[in-house]
Design a protein around this nucleic acid. Structure first.
Lengths: 104, 104
DNA sequence: ACCATACATCAACAATTGTTGATAAGTCAA
DNA sequence: TTGACTTATCAACAATTGTTGATGTATGGT
């Protein structure tokens, strides 16, 4: 299935619209972490975090890498560029241009 | 009720995590619009848009202004700064710093 | 081969979010 | 004041999202 740019944005923002997931991202700012570290850090159940990590991964905000029994998650720098693009686009076009007034 | 910075971010991203709302923002890039214009542009029911506009407003992404019978909505430049701050913070701390390896 | 560990997936359920049509509230014009 | 018009709000319902505990899968140690 083909996703428009806007649908991709929806996916990205949805991934960011949850407290637990923002906390996960925050932890990952300190570098790669395995799930066991994250569950301990967030005092959370394992399946719960697995769910949220999946959401973040599907939005391509994070990458995973298996090493032995452990899976390490890390921030994906590409996603940050996507975010920057969106914000730039919104900003550039936020000129206080004249209202349409078509309904006056 | 006091909101942490992160809870504000959740609110902001939630507002952005919907196709209809992104379309609304897109329309508002052309300047202030009244609800009647927006309903026509998006081929959408009025109460539906009213709902989404409320979400955007509560996230402080847009402002409203009454003029006679009409209510005009417009992008709020401050929100864009909040977005920029978030992205900058995420970016700056995305150093590919060493993993913790505490579980090895 | 067996067991323990680390993580993913699933099903059942709970909570939140979005839609629709009806009604209410505010504004203006006659 | 009556009525038309624009928008907001509400209640009922539908759809999506998140949680929990149980089970499945892969890996490595003994």
């Amino acid at each position: 299935m083909v996703k428009t740019q806007r649908e991709k944005a929806v996916l990205l923002f949805h991934a960011l619209s949850d407290l637990t997931r923002l906390e996960l991202l925050d932890k990952l700012k300190n570098g790669e972490q395995c799930v066991c570290d994250l569950t301990e850090a967030l005092h959370s159940g394992q399946s719960r975090l697995s769910f949220h990590l999946k959401v973040l991964k599907e939005a391509e905000l994070i990458n995973d890498r298996r090493e032995g029994r452990w899976v390490y998650y890390a921030l994906n720098p590409d996603a940050i560029e996507d975010l920057e693009d969106f914000v730039r686009d919104l900003k550039e076009t936020t000129r206080l241009g004249g209202a349409s007034k078509s309904c006056a």
